[in-house]
């Protein structure tokens, strides 16, 4: 299956069809970053390596974006067509919390601590088709 077109391809790597977030890790102190950085704000070192952050996490905090953001947001909706979307910090295995869109925008269905998994969602349409960004959705019960 061809992978979807991404707003920023370097944030994601695929294991088969499963997207993983890619960040960086400090070679000196081991602190993990997303997106990848050139230097470590914890220990001030400048040697960093790419780091796979995985694709599963738990919801650490959340809100629902209730109004259409101004530029530089480029989702393309109008005030009439805008649908509120979920936003959260998702705690990953290393303990880092990544800010992300959520596929759920219903306050009754969001709870701190709920298990989530990474997915890709279309967030804008151009002449060439849909552009995707990363988002977390409720984890499939395994």
């Amino acid at each position: 299956m061809p992978h979807p077109v991404l707003a920023r391809p370097d944030l994601i790597r695929f294991e088969g069809d499963t997207p993983h977030l890619v960040g960086s890790r400090c070679d000196e102190c081991g602190e993990v970053y997303f997106p990848a950085t050139d230097s470590c704000t914890r220990c001030t070192a400048t040697r960093m390596s790419p780091h796979d952050l995985g694709h599963r996490g738990t919801l650490w905090s959340w809100t629902i974006q209730g109004f259409l953001p101004k530029a530089p947001y480029n989702g393309g909706e109008t005030a009439e067509t805008f649908q509120p979307y979920g936003v959260g910090y998702v705690e990953l295995g290393s303990g880092i919390k990544v800010e992300s869109r959520l596929t759920v925008a219903d306050e009754a269905k969001l709870q701190i601590g709920m298990p989530l998994e990474l997915t890709l969602i279309p967030y804008r349409r151009t002449d060439d088709g849909e552009v995707h960004t990363f988002a977390f959705r409720p984890a499939a019960s395994a």
Binding site: Q65, N74, V87
Partner: peptide
Amino acid sequence: GETGLMLTTQFFALK
């Protein structure tokens, strides 16, 4: 910013 994550109101809500 482009994907709709850089809003001060979101930060205040999330914190």
